[in-house]
Amino acid sequence: MADKRKRTILIGVLVLVIVVAAAVYFSTRNTTPYVPLFSYELNQEQMQEVEDFLKKGHYDFQTDKKAILVHENEKQEILLEASRVGIPSK
């Protein structure tokens, strides 16, 4: 009887841990679409400068040949912070 109870408690704890881990994983995923950060093309030096800024700020971003893409819901925050520190330079 005691072994069955221990096994039931262990299974319950494992299920709880799995449910909590799944909830944390799915609640922290950013599923908003990526949009271009700037409406104009950047030269290579400016691209590198912006990429370094985004990495330093721990922002999730992607790059393609001519643009830097960020999550739509973070774009305004990033633009404000970048303009505050003068990025990209002209």
Rank of each mutant, 00 (worst) to 15 (best):
M1R: 12
A2Y: 12
A2M: 09
D3H: 14
K4R: 09
R5W: 08
R7K: 15
T8H: 12
T8C: 07
I9M: 00
I9K: 09
L10F: 10
L16C: 14
L16I: 14
V17N: 08
I18Y: 07
V19E: 05
V19I: 14
V20K: 13
A21R: 11
A22G: 06
A22Q: 06
A23G: 14
A23L: 14
A23Y: 11
Y25V: 07
F26I: 10
F26A: 01
S27E: 12
S27M: 13
T28S: 14
T28I: 12
T28W: 01
R29G: 02
R29N: 06
N30D: 15
T32R: 07
T32P: 04
V35I: 11
V35H: 04
P36C: 05
P36N: 12
L37F: 11
S39Y: 15
Y40H: 14
Y40R: 13
E41C: 00
L42Q: 14
L42W: 15
N43I: 07
Q44R: 14
E45K: 12
Q46W: 12
M47P: 07
M47Y: 01
Q48D: 15
Q48G: 12
E51K: 05
E51F: 00
E51A: 01
D52F: 10
D52P: 05
F53L: 03
L54C: 06
H58M: 04
H58T: 06
Y59V: 03
Y59N: 00
Y59A: 02
Y59C: 01
F61S: 02
F61A: 00
F61T: 01
Q62C: 01
T63N: 06
T63G: 00
T63K: 11
T63V: 13
D64Y: 09
I68M: 05
L69P: 09
N73R: 14
E74A: 07
E74F: 06
E74T: 10
K75Q: 13
Q76H: 09
Q76E: 11
E77T: 11
E77Q: 11
I78A: 02
I78G: 00
L79C: 03
L79F: 01
E81T: 06
E81A: 05
E81P: 00
A82W: 07
A82H: 03
A82G: 03
S83H: 13
R84W: 07
V85K: 12
V85F: 11
G86R: 11
I87C: 08
I87R: 02
P88Y: 01
K90M: 13
